[in-house]
Design a protein around this nucleic acid. Structure first.
Lengths: 166, 166
DNA sequence: TCAGACCTTAACGTGAACGTCAAGGTTGTG
DNA sequence: CACAACCTTGACGTTCACGTTAAGGTCTGA
């Protein structure tokens, strides 16, 4: 029997992984995973009787998301913590939402959630925008080179400015 | 007289700045600028008689580029070093290009330069792509919330899936 | 010419994000 | 039940990207 759960939320015990398995699955190291927990970025779904950390599918998802934010977006763990905190608030709001029937309250909850997501989008988009500008500059350099290459190929008709986007 | 130059390349002495001025201009600290030099990311255009570092316009440009790569793209200084090394190779190629008349050699130089820029673009684009995916996911969440809000507004006609992009 | 603001190198300090090692407990397979 | 392979919690080490301080040289305006 693959380890009993001490937590209440045990959806399906076959889906629970030990830390090294999670590491293999996510490409993180066990140390990093523990460190993220230490930094408050996640809590394992449960613990075995012997206090082994046990992770479920949503934990994996979260860890992959953390890795994306770290590697792809280049955020610090502190920033990631902020983003995930907003995520957590979103979850709590879902509860509050289901708990009430009052449309006015529901609207408030939804709008709060929306503003949080909006902020995340803003954060990501500003990064993407600046990255896009850098890509644009690089493409311009490439276009310039292409112009010179074409110049070597055909006649010397530079027509100095074409091919702005890929 | 604002400091004599010890280097051969002195295009216009009025454009030369001391490190603190460069710091104010670029938003970096003097320490960071020296550290980047230490890491081989740039050399000041010249030195004063008393060995003060003196920077010209192209140095500022380079430093701003470094800052962009660091802050916006989130690259490590090592990665930035790679990108700038390619940049440097590009410059050397420009010299080699002007030095020859042979179309075959010119073509080779241009194509080498193009492949370097292409690599830079690939690096940046892969980052932008993954960032874009994350933004897409966030937008989907926002759309979901918007759906619920509309549901509260008008009649309960969810139509669950619209508004994929901003 | 000289005071004060700036610069130099050298060296040590710091926070983030882990790596690594030690000492011991847990699991599950033979 | 033995035992290898995993896990636990410390605790200390390491790398990166600087910050800070020390001891001294340089620049410039009054």
């Amino acid at each position: 029997m693959p380890a009993k759960i001490t937590t209440a939320t045990s959806p399906d015990e076959t889906t629970l992984l030990k830390i090294q398995e999670v590491a293999a699955e996510t490409g993180l190291t066990p140390r990093s995973i523990r460190y993220y927990e230490e930094m408050g970025l996640l809590e394992p779904a449960g613990r075995s009787e012997g206090a082994y950390r046990l992770y479920d599918a949503s934990d994996l998802e979260r860890l992959r998301y953390i890795k994306e934010l770290r590697d792809d977006a280049g955020f610090s763990l502190a920033q990631i913590g902020q983003l995930l905190e907003d995520e957590a608030a979103r979850e709590r709001n879902r509860e509050r939402f289901r708990a009430t029937q009052d449309p006015r309250e529901r609207r408030a909850i939804l709008e709060d959630a929306r503003s949080r997501v909006e902020r995340q989008i803003q954060t990501l988009e500003s990064k993407a925008e600046r990255l896009g500008a850098m890509i644009g500059a690089a493409r311009a350099r490439r276009a310039h080179l292409d112009g010179h290459l074409a110049e070597l190929d055909g006649g010397p008709a530079p027509h100095p400015d074409r091919n702005a986007r890929a």
